[in-house]
C-alpha cells in the first residue's frame, strides 16, 4: 500500500496513463500474435490442402507406394482408435469423478488420488507410447493392435475426462442434492437421478475436448497400433490400423518421394485438422449454448 501511495505522489497522471497504454498495447499484441498464429496455420493448411481433397481421396486407399490414391484406411483407423479410447476413458473417468466429488471426504487417500491424476495428466505422450508398448503390446501380448492403441489413448485422456466431469458435477447446485436426500432418497439414487442428468451435458462437452486430443495424437499409437501401410482393413480389434496422424508423419518424413507427395500430405493434414477441430468446435458451441440456457 505504501508503495502505491508513494507512486501516486511521484507520478503525474499523464505518465501513469502513458505507462498504462504501453502495457495495454503489449497485452493486446500478445493476444493478437496468438490469434494470428492459429489463423496463419489454419489458413496455410486450408489453402494448400483443399486442392487434394476429393471424394476419392476420402474414400479410396493409397496406391503406388502411397504416392497416389486416398487415405480412407487412415481415416477409418483414426475413427476406430478414437471410439476405442472413448470406450476406455469415458466410463472410467466419469466413475472416478463421481467418487471424488460425491463420495470422497477430504483425506490423505483423496489427496493422493488427485496428485496421481495430475501426474498422469503430465505424462508425456511418448512415454504413454512406451507404456502401451511395454504393457499392452508385450506384457499382455495384445500385439500392435487397435486394442493396445485404444487402451493407451483411453488412459491418456482419462485425466482430462476426470477433470471435466468433476467440474460438471461440482456445478450441480448442492441444494438439488439436499432436496433429494431430505426426501429420504438414497445417495446413489440422488446421484443417478438428479446429479448425473444435470451434469451430463457438461461432462460430455468437457470430455469431447479430450476425445479430440485422442484423435490427433501420434506418439502414443506409433508403437502400439499404427501401421506404416496396410492394404486390408482391420478385421478385429487385434489388427493393426493406419491412422491419420501417423500417416502424416510417415508421408512427411519417410515416404518414397517426399516432395512429390506434398499435396497428399497437405490434404491429409487438412482432413485431420478438420476432424479434430470440428470435434472441439462442437464442444465449444454446445457449451456456450448451455451457458446461455442454464436455469440455475
Amino acid at each position: 500500500m505504501e508503495n502505491i501511495m508513494k507512486s501516486f505522489k511521484n507520478n503525474s497522471m499523464q505518465w501513469r496513463y502513458f505507462k498504462q497504454s504501453i502495457f495495454f498495447g503489449a497485452v493486446r499484441l500478445s493476444a493478437f500474435i496468438i490469434a494470428l498464429a492459429l489463423g496463419g496455420i489454419l489458413f496455410y493448411i486450408i489453402v494448400n490442402g483443399i486442392g487434394a481433397i476429393s471424394w476419392d481421396f476420402i474414400t479410396k486407399p493409397p496406391t503406388d507406394s502411397m504416392t497416389k490414391g486416398g487415405i480412407m484406411p487412415a481415416i477409418l483407423g483414426t475413427i476406430y482408435l478414437t471410439i476405442g479410447a472413448i470406450a476406455v476413458g469415458l466410463p472410467l473417468g466419469i466413475v472416478s469423478a463421481i467418487y471424488l466429488t460425491e463420495y470422497a471426504r477430504q483425506g490423505k487417500v483423496i489427496r493422493l488420488i488427485k496428485v496421481g491424476i495430475n501426474c498422469l495428466a503430465g505424462v508425456p505422450s511418448v512415454v504413454f507410447g512406451l507404456f502401451g508398448l511395454g504393457f499392452f503390446v508385450i506384457f499382455l501380448k495384445f500385439g500392435s493392435s487397435i486394442l493396445s492403441g485404444s487402451l493407451t489413448l483411453g488412459f491418456l485422456i482419462l485425466p482430462t475426462i476426470i477433470g471435466a466431469s468433476e467440474e460438471a458435477l461440482k456445478s450441480v447446485p448442492q441444494t438439488f442434492r439436499e432436496a433429494s436426500l431430505s426426501l429420504g432418497v438414497s445417495k446413489w439414487q440422488t446421484i443417478y437421478r438428479i446429479v448425473l442428468p444435470n451434469a451430463l451435458p457438461g461432462i460430455l462437452t468437457g470430455s469431447i475436448l479430450g476425445i479430440g486430443r485422442a484423435a490427433g495424437e501420434t506418439a502414443p499409437i506409433m508403437f502400439t497400433a499404427a501401421a506404416y501401410f496396410t492394404a486390408k482393413l482391420p478385421g478385429s480389434i487385434f489388427d493393426e490400423v493406419m491412422a491419420l496422424p501417423y500417416h502424416i508423419y510417415v508421408l512427411a518424413t519417410a515416404g518414397t518421394n517426399i516432395e512429390a507427395t506434398r499435396p497428399i500430405q497437405f490434404g491429409t493434414v487438412l482432413v485431420l485438422v478438420a476432424v479434430v477441430l470440428s470435434i472441439d468446435l462442437i464442444a465449444i458451441i454446445i457449451r456456450s449454448y448451455m451457458r446461455k440456457n442454464k436455469r440455475w
Binding site: I34, A37, L38, L209, G212, D280, L281, I284
Partner: peptide, 19 residues
C-alpha cells in the same frame, strides 16, 4: 482461439514447422 490452438494435433504443428 486458445482452445482450438490447444486442439491442434502436434503432428500438424510439426508438419507446419517442417514445410
Amino acid at each position: 482461439v486458445i482452445e482450438l490452438l490447444a486442439g491442434l494435433p502436434s503432428v500438424v504443428l510439426g508438419f507446419f514447422g517442417m514445410v
